[in-house]
Design a protein around this nucleic acid. Structure first.
Lengths: 302, 302
DNA sequence: GCATATCTCTGACTTTAGTCAGATAATTCT
DNA sequence: AGAATTATCTGACTAAAGTCAGAGATATGC
């Protein structure tokens, strides 16, 4: 099964790149060499400092410097020192550069039409659906899950989106209160971990695990378990299995924290989440905490 | 609508090539420059003469010659004169070349797995389906329809497949008889035209138009019309709109022959074909010829 | 305020990729 | 048999792409 999928991916790669020329061809034929055109395109898509471009395109600094000089000589870009830090230089398109950029866009558009136009409207729709699905899944597959400090900007951004969604979906809204400062300790090592999924620089999902203890009765030892909290997946990324992947990742993290029991709580309003937990092998249990927003409680043994 | 599809294609191109590196990256990192690795891969996929490789890869003959010499020096390929024509040289992999080729395959496979493995089995299946659909449609969209002599090898090959299919699908089989020699005249200019759709060198669909005349009654002038014949689409290519595209192409050809009426006959066994004709605006008419295999007769005014 | 690090640029280089005009040998045409 | 054609190779180029070691200017840490 596995290798079947890989074979289809490879077959697709071969035929697609052969036919489309990987979009790059549209960068040719306007008097600029490929690398220079690519750079121009990147500057137009989002201007920035020289170092940003270097990171985005993965170029040697000397090489990039020369490419920029060439674009500057052709009056397509301007280089000016960044007022914040005068070692840095900001790169921006001139009017002529913008025109050249528009031309690149047009060529790229034309190339896409060359592919699409021979198809009937029905087949065009099928192709669009197939590519949109593939795009979503490929993006989801290449998202990187990284442990971060819960107070770091990406984590805060993701949690902000999470709370905003709870507030929108819960019948009586949701008040985060002073949650986030408490999280900072509990969701950081050694007590826990917080993970953010980042794609193209923006957080698209998050979630954390923390160690919890529960007394099972008077005179007994406390039982430790891992609790999964703050699990959120960006709207546009649902249905790509990102949630399941994140959940597996957090279970592994709980395991590394030394737990073989994982618990979580949730609310009826989060229907898809509940379905996902059940698919992943979570069983509903009794209330195990006093979270006023929680209505369902789940547990899984790893 | 149109530009929506183009936008999706472009979005996909960008994210996909960025993430996958267009398969080519797997050709790097083994001591060979990209072009040389690509050549090695091509030789391994199907050995052949130097000129074949030149055509397949679109390289300059001098350049190719040097690349081959380099591969020969590294003992990855052998060059030997073709016994049939000693100007030609046959290129084949040595044992070491085969090992290097296997290595390329392995890298490519690994790269595909890198993409596929993070997904759940369900998402993997979705990705495989989406890419297979996109692959079929992209191939169909980039098929080139070319007028050929009905006696030429690709035309004969396509018609052979067509007759074989009729023989398999008709309840009492089908006997082509001496059809093909008659066709050669009637389906060639100036009387008609024969079109073959070729993808990666193999015919995947065909069809022709010929001028016909019919007396509408004693003492009247003969009425001329275009008749579409030998329309066939390869099994693996159905459902991609190739039939409709071919049909539109043939209608345009009929129009160029000066007709505004197009007719065709077909058999009940060809259900999908009949459905397609109806979708394309063909109306069923009375029998207009004495073809013993025909059961349905269609006409369209252009 | 001095050492250290960072950002960009310059010079000197290499490899890759590719083009073009013949040269050479074998084949096909007449 | 001689002329024309075809397949491949060689030599002499060029442009693009990229690497590496510093230099010079600016910022940051202590």
């Amino acid at each position: 099964m596995h290798s079947d999928v890989a074979a289809i991916v490879r077959r697709f790669n071969r035929s697609y790149t052969q036919r489309i020329g990987a979009l790059d061809d549209s960068f040719l034929g306007m008097g600029l060499p490929l690398g220079t055109a690519r750079l121009l395109f990147e500057i137009g898509a989002e201007p920035g400092s020289v170092q940003e471009l270097r990171a985005r395109l993965g170029l040697d600094s000397g090489y990039l410097s020369r490419l920029l000089r060439r674009l500057e000589q052709e009056a397509l870009v301007t280089l000016s020192p960044d007022p914040q830090d005068r070692r840095r230089r900001r790169v921006e398109l001139t009017a002529a550069g913008r025109a050249a950029w528009d031309d690149l866009e047009r060529r790229s558009e034309e190339r896409a039409h060359l592919l699409v136009d021979p198809l009937t409207p029905r087949q065009q729709q099928r192709l669009a659906d197939a590519l949109a699905t593939a795009d979503l899944l490929v993006r989801a597959a290449t998202v990187s899950l990284e442990p971060v400090d819960p107070m770091s900007p990406p984590a805060q951004q993701a949690m902000g989106a999470y709370f905003a969604e709870l507030d929108a979906r819960f019948p009586h809204g949701f008040d985060a209160g002073s949650q986030s400062t408490k999280d900072a300790e509990l969701l950081s090592p050694p007590n826990g971990i917080f993970v953010v999924a980042v794609s193209d620089g923006t957080p698209v999902a998050c979630g954390g695990v923390q160690t919890q203890h529960q007394m099972m009765g008077p005179g007994t030892d406390a039982v430790a378990y891992g609790e999964i909290k703050r699990m959120w997946v960006h709207d546009g990324w649902r249905g790509a299995g990102l949630g399941s992947r994140l959940l597996r990742h957090l279970e592994a993290a709980a395991s590394e924290l030394g737990h073989d029991i994982v618990r979580l709580d949730t609310n009826d309003a989060l229907v898809e989440a509940i379905a996902m937990y059940q698919r992943a092998g979570y069983a509903e249990i009794e209330r195990y905490n006093d979270n006023p927003y929680a209505r369902h409680f789940f547990e899984k043994r790893l």
